[in-house]
């Protein structure tokens, strides 16, 4: 139940996006994927989810190349929460969350009681049960993002890939949603790989960080070791101070700007 990534490269046409990545992901951890815009984070998630084929190198999932697993099996084990989510048709919130159950249901099967229980639980955990009957096209960006996260939770996959899934959420909902993801990791043995722009959220929730710049892996390791002022400078070219909160023990980042 783990990923091994060996010498992975990927290009869109002639534009190389990822180059020579080597790392492993172990089950039961919360990983954070951090790096500047356009460094290939979303592409890496697509590769891990099996939506794209590597140009070079390979991705082993459960010791097998990922493309050797069937599409349907992967859809039961790997869930992706995309960054932008716009829906042109007037589906209700609960209908969208129920779509997370489709991989577990036959093509013409109807959802059973157990499926609705999972949908209810996912909606309760993301705080959207109150507007389950509303149309997704009428929701705010943050509400819509929580619906997509609920859909991924309902999918009940062992691996959860989050692509800036909290970027539209206020701090209260971001903390709540990531807290739920961490609970899945701690209590249900799931694994999360989250692209996060907010370094403080990464510091708060992630067990390990992978730092990515211009398609290459800068460094990877436990958050406490990797999240340093020096690495932040290498990654984003900004000055920052990383401190440890004495109460919670987690790190936090304070940026410094030239006066």
């Amino acid at each position: 139940m783990s990923f091994r990534i060996e010498n992975l490269s990927f290009a869109y046409g002639t534009r190389t996006v990822l180059e020579g990545l080597d790392f492993a992901l172990e089950a039961g951890r919360f990983y954070g994927l951090v790096g500047p815009n356009g460094c290939g984070k979303s592409t890496l998630l697509d590769l891990l989810a099996g939506h794209r084929r590597p140009a070079h190198g390979r991705i082993l999932y459960r010791q097998q190349p990922i493309e050797s697993h069937g599409r349907r099996r992967l859809s039961r084990e790997l869930a992706l929460v995309p960054q932008d989510f716009y829906i042109n048709f007037p589906f209700r919130v609960e209908e969208v969350v129920m779509m997370g159950r489709y991989p577990h249901l036959g093509r013409f099967a109807r959802a059973g009681v157990a499926d609705w229980q999972r949908v209810d639980a996912a909606m309760a955990r993301t705080g959207i049960a109150a507007f389950r009957g509303r149309l997704v096209s009428e929701l705010s960006g943050g509400e819509r993002q929580r619906v997509v996260i609920a859909r991924a939770l309902a999918q009940d996959a062992a691996w959860l890939f989050l692509d800036e899934a909290t970027s539209n959420l206020d701090v209260n909902h971001a903390l709540a949603v990531l807290g739920q993801v961490r609970r899945s990791v701690r209590q249900e043995g799931k694994t999360a790989v989250a692209v996060l722009q907010d370094l403080n959220l990464a510091a708060l929730f992630c067990d390990e960080l992978l730092l990515l710049k211009q398609g290459r892996l800068v460094t990877a390791g436990p958050t406490a070791e990797v999240l340093t002022a020096a690495n932040i400078r290498r990654l984003f070219e900004v000055d920052a101070r990383v401190a440890r909160d004495p109460e919670s023990g987690s790190r936090h980042v304070v940026f410094r700007v030239a006066p």
Binding site: D46, H51, L74, L78, P82, N88, V96, Y102, P103, Q155
Partner: peptide
């Protein structure tokens, strides 16, 4: 009709649909 459910998933966007098993 055979692909009706896949059409629903496609409404969520291509990445979501792919993640839910749609080719």
């Amino acid at each position: 009709l055979y692909f009706a459910r896949d059409l629903n998933l496609l409404a969520l966007g291509e990445r979501s649909a792919a993640s839910l098993g749609v080719d």
